Computed example of a mutant assay.
Amino acid sequence: MTFKTILAVTAPGLGDADLKLAATLCEEAGAHLAVFVVGLAAPPPIGAYAAVVSEAWFQERQLDLERLQARTDTVSGLLASMTVSSDVSSEYQEIAWADEAIGRRARYADLTVLGPEGLSSEELKTNVIEGVLFHSGKSLLLVPQGAAPTLKPRQVMVAWDSRLESSQALAASLPLLVKTEEVHLVLVDPVESEDEHGAEPGADAATYLARHGVKVTVDRLPSQDRPVAAVLRQQAIDTAAELLVMGAYGHSRLRQRIFGGVTSSMIEDPPIPVLMAR
């Protein structure tokens, strides 16, 4: 599989930097750029004062719709000035269900990109991350401030722990890995056992990659009482990685998303562009 459709998500009040970043990746990959403009609706008033404030709430929703239309028009104008193939769609969605709307849209893209602007907007970031990871079955690329993302990286680091999410991230990243100069498969405190890493931790994953023509090196690292995320961050620096590939660990409980410690750390402060899948 190659990346043929890349999705970028934006919202009223945001600028165009993330869209331009996604367009650059589309140019590099020869991909189509799909933009989803999402307006987040505040919940309706409830309780004793609901009747008093409902008129103000309706007026605010009308303003939201106008802002959404204005943002969509601005995005349409921007896309018309670009050379990449593109389309734009928009949706005004209750904030409790916005992640599912984004996830549905992401099912029709090979990759969703969330850049620095999106990462700085807590509501949008939360809904994009949860929507893509829990509702699309596709991968997500997080791009921190100051990073220069590329879909043709020379050095890639893969965080490997032999679990299902890690395997899915590895498979999702294969279109990139087969074209790299070197991939570092990083294991932190690997356990030698039949139901974890096997007799030689990392060997089976390295063989899988090598059969695809990937040039892979296995790095088995001790945590030495450091958080796993800190070990991964340092290894990304030490290997001059341009991309970190990792599985996203978490689950949904009564619509409350719960991520594991390493996943949460990378979401909050990605050291380099991070490709996630689950």
Rank of each mutant, 00 (worst) to 15 (best):
L185R: 12
G131H: 00
A205H: 07
D87N: 10
L185S: 06
A148N: 15
A203F: 07
K179F: 05
E130F: 07
E91H: 09
A148D: 12
V113C: 08
D87P: 03
E91D: 02
L164S: 09
V188T: 03
R105V: 02
E100P: 03
V191W: 09
A205G: 09
A96R: 08
H135G: 01
E200V: 10
K125A: 13
L185F: 10
R163C: 10
L141E: 08
E100Y: 05
A147T: 04
K138I: 02
L177V: 01
I95E: 07
I95A: 11
K138P: 00
M82A: 04
E182R: 15
D195Y: 05
S85G: 12
D161Q: 06
A169W: 06
Y92M: 13
A159C: 04
L176C: 00
Q93V: 14
S162W: 02
K125M: 06
D161F: 11
D204C: 01
L140K: 14
G115C: 08
S85M: 11
L133R: 02
G202P: 06
L133Q: 00
R107A: 04
V132N: 09
R163G: 09
K179N: 09
L140Q: 12
K125Q: 11
D195E: 15
W160D: 01
A109D: 01
V88K: 00
L141F: 08
E192K: 15
V143C: 13
D204I: 08
L185E: 11
E194M: 03
K138F: 07
H184P: 00
E181W: 06
H197R: 14
G103K: 00
I95Q: 06
L170W: 12
V84Q: 10
E94D: 14
T126A: 09
E100A: 14
D161R: 02
E117C: 10
P144I: 05
G131F: 00
W97F: 08
V143F: 11
E117K: 14
S89G: 10
R163K: 15
S136G: 04
S89L: 05
V132S: 08
E196L: 13
M82I: 09
A147P: 01
A171M: 08
L133K: 00
L114K: 15
E130V: 15
Q155H: 11
D189M: 09
A101N: 13
S139D: 05
L187M: 02
A171S: 12
R104I: 07
L142F: 05
A199Q: 15
V183G: 07
T83C: 00
L119A: 02
L187S: 02
L111R: 07
K125F: 09
P201V: 01
D161N: 15
I129N: 05
S167L: 11
W160S: 04
P153T: 10
E122G: 04
K138Q: 10
P153L: 12
Q168W: 04
P175W: 03
R107Y: 05
L176Y: 01
A171D: 14
V188K: 00
L114N: 13
E182M: 15
L176N: 02
P116G: 07
I95G: 01
R163I: 03
K152E: 13
E182T: 14
A96S: 14
A159E: 03
S120E: 12
E94C: 03
L177Y: 13
V88S: 02
K138L: 04
L174E: 03
W160G: 00
L174Y: 02
D110F: 06
E200P: 08
